[in-house]
Design a protein around this nucleic acid. Structure first.
Lengths: 193, 193
DNA sequence: TTCGGCTTGCGCAATTACTGA
DNA sequence: GTCAGTAATTGCGCAAGCCGA
């Protein structure tokens, strides 16, 4: 588990920011502020129509991914509450072509652009992997918690057992010491005759 | 912990999607596909210059949020690795005004729009809360794991203790039975006289 | 009832871990 | 052993729901 928010780094980020706040190369920024590129890339372009068959493929991938998570959840039957907190889950972002304005000019080498089918397939595969990984993590956490509770109970039982055995040992020792004392007295009594 | 990916719900989502894949009301879609609005809202507008004081406020909030996480991490000194995996963390998205093209016309009642300062402040507060909450969850998981290991060790010690006590009880019982046999023999021997 | 913080599912992107050629 | 491609992991932001004051 890695945390990038160490004090030094966060302070450095904070300090460095003043010089790089206009960096247009950040992919996360371009994802959230695509309009920064409008001056360069905002020229009118033909909206790329996505073939229906590709939509079907994406739908199938999404569906199978969700089915995987659902089945694995039910397979292990963990006590997750299944309340539909996210009521309006929206898959349309995967089925619609990305906006035309995020297209880069042809000369730009950025790998596959955000509207390419390869990019969408890659993203969707990763989304499935992410869901799978997080589900696995949830299971691991649940197992650890259950194991801790079980160990706690076991510990309690063992302590009771130890208590019982200790009492037994004490009783036996006490009994023996009494017997020993008695015998000593008897021997003393006998020896006086 | 709630999971909304039950089989039924995911299938329903899948089925429902066919009728709503073009829903432009999805906020998540609008976040990732802001250009869908260009035809409506892409008219030339004056770029809203953000006052420097607001940038300062946002910077302070971000900085304090990161500081909180950092300090709480160091305060409890958990063995997190501090490798800077995200090398180019970019805060500029919070410090720059949002793109003009995401502005909604005044008539639209959507609550605070994505470019309003109130929205950005709300988002930034939530981001801080999210970081805090996830950090707390990480700590909880770490504690649970450590507790499980500790309980396991404790369990082992207790089992050894029980083993020792059981042997002791056995030895004492055996000793007593021998003594009892001896005494019976003695009594028998004495009674014969 | 409302409001603000807290949780949590999710997608994105970067990075790491694996695996087969 | 190397390298390319893919899966897995992880930090992050967004949004929705939850909860207590």
């Amino acid at each position: 588990m890695s945390i990038s928010d160490s004090p030094a780094s966060s302070i450095c980020m904070f300090a460095l920011h003043h010089q790089s706040s206009l960096n247009p190369d950040s992919s996360s920024m371009s994802a959230q502020m695509p309009q920064m590129d409008t001056g360069l890339y905002g020229q009118p372009m033909a909206f790329p129509k996505t073939p229906d068959v590709v939509c079907m493929v994406l739908q199938c991938i999404t569906f199978l991914g969700n089915l995987y998570v659902s089945l694995s959840l039910n397979l292990f039957s963990f006590p997750f509450s299944v309340t539909p907190r996210i009521s309006g889950k929206d898959f349309s972002q995967f089925l619609l072509p990305p906006p035309a304005s995020t297209l880069r000019p042809m000369g730009q080498k950025r790998g596959p652009s955000k509207d390419s089918m390869e990019y969408r397939l890659r993203r969707e595969r990763n989304n499935i992997a992410v869901r799978k990984s997080r589900d696995k993590a949830r299971r691991r956490i649940q197992l650890t918690q259950q194991r801790a509770l079980q160990l706690q109970d076991e510990n309690h039982s063992l302590q009771l057992h130890i208590q019982h055995l200790s009492h037994e040992v004490d009783a036996l020792r006490h009994y023996l010491s009494q017997r020993h004392l008695q015998e000593n007295l008897s021997e003393l009594f006998i020896s006086q005759f």
